[in-house]
Amino acid sequence: MFASLFVLLYVAHLLADYPLQTDHQAAHKASGGWAGWSANAHHAATHIVTCGAALLAGAALLDDVDISMPVAVGALVWIGATHAVIDRRWPVQWWMHHTGQSQWAQHGGAAHVDQAAHVAALLVAALALSA
């Protein structure tokens, strides 16, 4: 069940992060003020809805997916919250600065560290759902 849940959440993540993310969200989700927080919250909500739909589809269509509603709600809150924090960009910048990756950050590495952090959060969600 873990593999199915992880794939469902990962595909939903990719959909929410790329084709379902608006230009406004991408440009402003790390900005200060109302516009930044609003863009960030809407983007995180897109992840929650998309991952929720993926979990519902998996539960309905796959024999090996049987999830608890309270655990699913917790996993979706986790996904939305971690996505919102990571996308404020300062956690990735902090990580790269404190792990000797400053040069890589200046040459496009932040996007890769960002995605790795999101995938790690999805891993935790999939583990919780399959436990």
Rank of each mutant, 00 (worst) to 15 (best):
H43K: 02
A59Q: 14
L62C: 06
G100T: 08
A53F: 13
G58P: 02
T50Q: 08
L76A: 04
D63F: 08
L123K: 00
V73E: 09
A117R: 01
H47Q: 08
L76I: 10
V73Q: 08
W94M: 11
R89H: 12
V113P: 04
V92L: 02
A81M: 04
A126G: 01
L61M: 14
T50H: 07
H43R: 04
G74M: 07
H98Q: 13
A54Q: 05
V71I: 14
T46W: 08
G108Y: 09
H97D: 14
Q115W: 13
P70V: 10
H107E: 14
I67Q: 07
L61S: 12
A121I: 09
G74C: 07
T99I: 00
H98W: 13
H112A: 14
A54Y: 03
R88T: 12
V77C: 06
W94F: 15
A120P: 02
H97L: 11
A84P: 03
H118A: 08
P91R: 02
I79L: 07
T46H: 05
A117Q: 11
H118C: 12
Q106P: 00
L55R: 06
L123C: 13
M96D: 02
Q115R: 11
R88H: 13
T99M: 06
G109L: 08
A110Y: 10
H83D: 11
A81L: 12
A60K: 08
A116L: 15
V113H: 03
I86C: 02
H83G: 12
A84D: 10
D87Q: 05
A81E: 01
R89C: 01
M96I: 09
G80T: 07
A111Q: 12
D87L: 05
S130I: 07
G100W: 07
G80L: 07
L127N: 02
A84L: 07
L62N: 03
W94I: 10
A121H: 03
A128P: 05
Q93I: 12
H118L: 12
D63R: 15
R88V: 05
H83N: 10
P70W: 09
A128V: 15
I67A: 04
D64W: 03
G52Q: 05
I79H: 04
